[in-house]
C-alpha cells in the first residue's frame, strides 16, 4: 500500500450539496503545499445523492477515496473507518458541512511538524446559534476539561490533526470522537490547540440537537471512570475493598459490644451487616484482579510504548 504524507478524513451524512465545494476547497488549499495526500470521504449511509456525487469525483481523481457504509452508524464510526483506511503519516479530520475551513490545514501540519501529536481546532468565532449551541458548548467544554484533566477549549470542533500512529491505536467507539484528546492523554501525548475559522452553514441542516447532552454526559462519566480505573484498577478496587472491610469491622465490633459490656447476646442484625460488607470487600478485590487481567491482555499498553519510541 502506497504511503502518503497526509490524509484528510471527512465524514459525510446527507451532504449532497457540500460534496463538490468541499472537494474543490480542499484540493485548492492542499495542492500548493506540494505534498502527497489523499482525501477520504466517508459516506455514513446517506439517504440522498451524497455517495453518487462523491463517486463521480473519485472516478476523475484517484487521490479521492470514498468509503460507503451499509447504513448510518454515526460520526464516530465514520471517523474511525476513515482513520482505519487512511494511508497518511498525518491525519486531518474535518466536518463535511463546510463550516470548517480547509485553509487552516497547513497550520495544523506545521504544528504536527513542531512535534505535537494532536492539534485541536478552536472555533474562536463560532457561527452558530448562541443559546442552543454556543452556550451549552462552552459549559460542556469547561466540564469536560475539569473532569478529564485535559483542558481543550473546543472539544466539539472536528478539525483536528493527528500523528497517524498515535490515533490509530486509540480505542474509538460509541460517541468517543469528542473525547479523543482525553483518551490519548492516557499515553501522555502532547496536545496543541490553534484558532480556526468557522463559517455559517451553507447547505443542509445540522445533525445535532440538544438531546445529545444526555449522551455526552454519560459518555463523559464512562470516560472518567475508564481513565481513573484503566491504569491502576487493582489499586482503586483495593482501596474500595479496604473501606468495605473497615465498615465490616466497625459493624462487627458494634454487634459484639453488648457481649463485652455485659450478659447481652451478640446483635445478629449488625453482624449480618458486617458479613455483607465483608463479602463486598472480597468482591472488590476479585473485580480489581479481573480488571487488571483484562488490561494486561489488551493492546492498550502499546500506546505508551509508541510514545517512548517516538521520543
Amino acid at each position: 500500500m502506497e504511503r502518503k504524507y497526509l490524509s484528510i478524513i471527512v465524514p459525510l451524512y446527507n451532504e449532497e450539496e457540500s460534496v463538490l465545494p468541499l472537494y474543490e476547497s480542499i484540493t485548492g488549499e492542499i495542492d500548493p503545499l506540494q505534498v502527497s495526500y489523499e482525501i477520504l470521504f466517508v459516506d455514513d449511509g446517506s439517504k440522498d445523492r451524497t455517495f453518487i456525487k462523491a463517486r463521480e469525483l473519485a472516478h476523475k481523481d484517484p487521490r479521492l477515496r470514498v468509503i460507503r457504509f451499509r447504513k448510518n452508524y454515526g460520526q464516530t464510526a465514520a471517523m474511525t473507518a476513515g482513520i482505519d483506511q487512511a494511508r497518511g503519516d498525518i491525519l486531518v479530520t474535518m466536518d463535511g458541512d463546510l463550516q470548517n475551513d480547509p485553509a487552516d490545514i497547513p497550520e495544523f501540519i506545521r504544528k504536527i511538524g513542531e512535534g505535537y501529536d494532536i492539534v485541536c481546532g478552536w472555533r474562536h468565532k463560532r457561527q452558530d446559534k448562541l443559546i442552543s449551541r454556543r452556550i451549552p458548548s462552552v459549559v460542556a467544554n469547561w466540564i469536560i476539561g475539569k473532569i478529564t484533566g485535559v483542558p481543550i477549549k473546543d472539544n466539539g470542533c472536528s478539525l483536528k490533526a493527528y500523528r497517524g500512529e498515535i490515533i490509530k491505536s486509540v480505542p474509538l467507539y460509541s460517541d468517543m470522537h469528542r473525547f479523543i484528546p482525553a483518551m490519548t492523554s492516557l499515553a501522555g501525548t502532547n496536545i496543541a490547540e490553534i484558532k480556526v475559522n468557522h463559517h455559517p452553514r451553507r447547505f443542509g441542516v445540522s445533525k445535532y440537537g440538544i438531546t445529545r447532552i444526555y449522551k455526552v454526559t454519560i459518555d463523559l462519566l464512562v470516560i472518567k471512570t475508564l481513565l481513573s480505573f484503566a491504569t491502576r484498577p487493582l489499586q482503586l478496587f483495593g482501596a474500595g475493598g479496604a473501606i468495605a472491610l473497615i465498615a465490616a469491622m466497625l459493624l462487627l465490633f458494634e454487634s459484639l459490644s453488648g457481649v463485652f459490656r455485659g450478659p447481652i447476646e451478640m446483635n445478629f442484625m449488625l453482624a449480618s451487616g458486617a458479613l455483607l460488607f465483608g463479602i463486598l470487600s472480597f468482591f472488590c478485590l476479585l473485580v480489581g484482579l479481573l480488571c487488571e487481567l483484562v488490561m494486561k491482555t489488551g493492546k492498550f499498553r502499546d500506546l505508551s510504548y509508541l510514545k517512548t519510541r517516538a521520543e
Partner: peptide
C-alpha cells in the same frame, strides 16, 4: 459494567462498529 466496558475499550480496535459496503480508489 466496568469490566464489560474495559473489555470493549481494550478490543475496540478489533471489534468493528461499522460495516463498509464499498470503497472507491
Amino acid at each position: 459494567g466496568l469490566i464489560g466496558e474495559l473489555i470493549i475499550f481494550i478490543h475496540a480496535r478489533d471489534v468493528k462498529e461499522y460495516q463498509i459496503e464499498q470503497i472507491i480508489n
